[in-house]
Amino acid sequence: MAKDVGRRDFLTQIAAVGGAAVAGVSPAAEAAAPSEQAASAGQQASALANAGYTFLSAPEAAFIEALVDVIVPADELTPSGTDLGLATFIDRQLAGAWGKGDRLYQQGPWKEGSPGQGYQLPLTPAEFFRAGIEAVNRHCKEANGKEFDRLPAADKQKIMEDLEKGTITLDKISGKQFFDTAYQATMEGMFADPIYGGNRDKASWKMIGYPGVIAIHATNITTYRNKPYVVNPVSIADLS
């Protein structure tokens, strides 16, 4: 069972080994340990996942949960995207400053532009997600008879592939643009610090062997030359 290194434990450890945490085995090489971690993280995360959404409506939340679960299925490496907190992450991002258009130049006139000119819609990220979810669901109901989250796994996979390729035409917005935005938000939730609601139990960091926010590697860069440096990752909350 994985155990987090708390702040005090961590500082003790630092003092004991002079900044270099103890190396273990590569997570990729040793599948059993991450699997155990994943199961435990999943149980913990399920309770948190029911904590609720602040921006997404119930149908929107169902859509986003389905989407992050296609991108990040539960397996031996991590719990599902929803259990990792990725829907929670996206919900909070959309409810917060970024979702409301922080740092986004929002003056008109608005024109479509060429791809190299970047984002040109009058929608904030929150409005864009809302419009995208609605448009994809409308497409799914017309083409497949049900909303995205209620489709069988193979259909969800096909819809995602077609959105990515740009072969689905949606009302008003580009399916590919929606896919790219939702995909990027999912990646951000998966690999950002858990303080934002995703990457629960630092499961994504454990999956790749990323040690997190503590990074005193002036000695390690030589000591661990061509040797995996594997520690229990440390997050912002662990040190706060």
């Binding site: 610090d193 997190g212 503590i214 912002i236």
Partner: peptide, 13 residues
């Protein structure tokens, strides 16, 4: 540290 080691806030946003 730790707030500066926030990839989302500094590198993405």
């Amino acid at each position: 540290v730790p707030r500066i080691r926030d990839e989302l806030r500094y590198a993405q946003r």
